[in-house]
Every structure is written in structure tokens, then in C-alpha cells.
């Protein structure tokens, strides 16, 4: 069986990540160690072949840093809320399963959005419909339709942030027309 060859450029982010992990594990970033790590990472990527992740080809670091800080702030806030809920509300907590249809149809962006949503305490992805890129979330402490709306808006704003960081041009265009409307 012949495999579809992927270009080095497409594989590069994976190789760089493997080299960083290698250096971090040895706690040694000297050139010799990194070179050996690079050789190993190429061997690993060849032997344990995975389907390539389709990147959009752009990455905006100016949007990425505020997004990361906002993410950390949200994690802190939501962790405190969860602690409060666990202690005071406990068994009487009300939940909801909410469907959110995303704009993007790229696997990478849907996965990234799902990851960020799941990492912020209080919501987790129960089911994904890949054909319509719909996420079904289970959310903690939702008792009114208004809160369901708020959650949907939050998910869409997180997706918008991710599109600004690494979405394709088409998706950016969708965001722009939405903002104009």
C-alpha cells in the first residue's frame, strides 16, 4: 500500500515539537543534543505514520497572546465557580446539553475549539457531528434559556478568537461579514 507523501513543510511543526520535547526531557538544549533529537524525530515520524494535520498556513501571534491570557483568566474564574458549586450546590445542580453549530468546517479548528471549551471548567463536549461541525456540550449550572444563549455566544466567541489566530482566509471573511451585519 502506498502512502500519500506529505511535504516537509507540512510536517515541520510536528518535528519541531518533537525536538522541543526531546530537549525538555533531557533538560539540555545544546546543539548536539538537538541534532540527535531531530534525527530521532524524523525517524519517529517516518516509522509511526499519522495522517497529516491540515494547517491553514497562518498563525497570528498578536492574537494568540491575549487569547492565551484570556484563557488562563477564564480557567481560574471557572475553577473557583466549580469549587463553589461543589461545596454549596452539590446534588441540586442543574445542567443542560446544548448544541452549538460552529462556523468552521476544518477538523483542526473544531478540535481546538472543543479542547478550549472542555478545558474551561463547567462545560464538556459530549458529542461531535463532523458533517455539520456541531458540538454538543454538557454544561454545569444552566437553569434558564438565557444562560443557554450566553453559553452559545461564549463558544462562538472562542471560535472567533481561534479563527483570528489560525483560521483560513475564508473563515476570516465570514467573521468580517458577521461583524458588519
Amino acid at each position: 500500500m502506498s502512502r500519500r507523501r506529505i511535504s516537509l513543510r507540512q510536517e515541520l511543526p510536528l518535528l519541531v515539537w518533537l525536538v522541543i520535547v526531546w530537549g525538555a526531557l533531557w533538560q539540555d538544549f545544546s546543539p548536539g543534543n538537538l541534532l540527535f533529537g531531530a534525527l530521532l524525530s524524523v525517524a519517529v515520524a517516518r516509522l509511526f505514520y499519522l495522517p497529516p494535520v491540515e494547517l491553514s498556513g497562518r498563525f497570528n501571534i498578536l492574537h494568540a497572546i491575549p487569547f492565551a491570557l484570556m484563557f488562563l483568566a477564564k480557567v481560574v474564574m471557572a475553577s473557583m465557580q466549580l469549587l463553589f458549586l461543589a461545596v454549596w450546590r452539590g446534588p441540586r445542580v442543574k445542567n443542560a446539553v446544548v448544541a452549538v453549530t460552529l462556523r468552521s468546517h476544518q477538523d483542526l479548528l473544531v478540535t481546538a475549539t472543543g479542547h478550549v471549551i472542555s478545558l474551561i471548567p463547567g462545560s464538556l463536549v459530549v458529542e461531535v457531528d463532523r458533517s455539520t461541525s456541531t458540538l454538543y456540550l454538557h454544561a454545569l449550572n444552566i437553569s434558564s434559556p438565557q444562560e443557554v444563549e450566553n453559553l452559545k455566544n461564549e463558544v462562538l466567541s472562542i471560535e472567533a478568537g481561534l479563527i483570528r489566530i489560525m483560521g483560513t482566509r475564508d473563515e476570516l471573511e465570514i467573521l468580517r461579514t458577521e461583524a458588519a451585519a
Binding site: V75, V76, A86, L124
Partner: peptide, 30 residues
């Protein structure tokens, strides 16, 4: 404290899905 919160949540939340929230999330920060 975050890990303690996870333990309390596991004990007190009513069903599997809400326990999942307590079991997986607070340790990200912790």
C-alpha cells in the same frame, strides 16, 4: 485546594456527567 475541590465535586455531584466536570477540570489549574 483545586484538587480538594475535585474530590468534593466527585462526592457531591449527582450524576456521571456532572462528576466528569469535577474530576477533570480543576486540576488543569491545580
Amino acid at each position: 485546594t483545586m484538587s480538594l475541590g475535585a474530590a468534593i465535586g466527585l462526592l457531591r455531584f449527582p450524576d456521571l456527567l456532572s462528576r466528569m466536570h469535577a474530576a477533570t477540570k480543576p486540576q488543569v489549574l491545580g
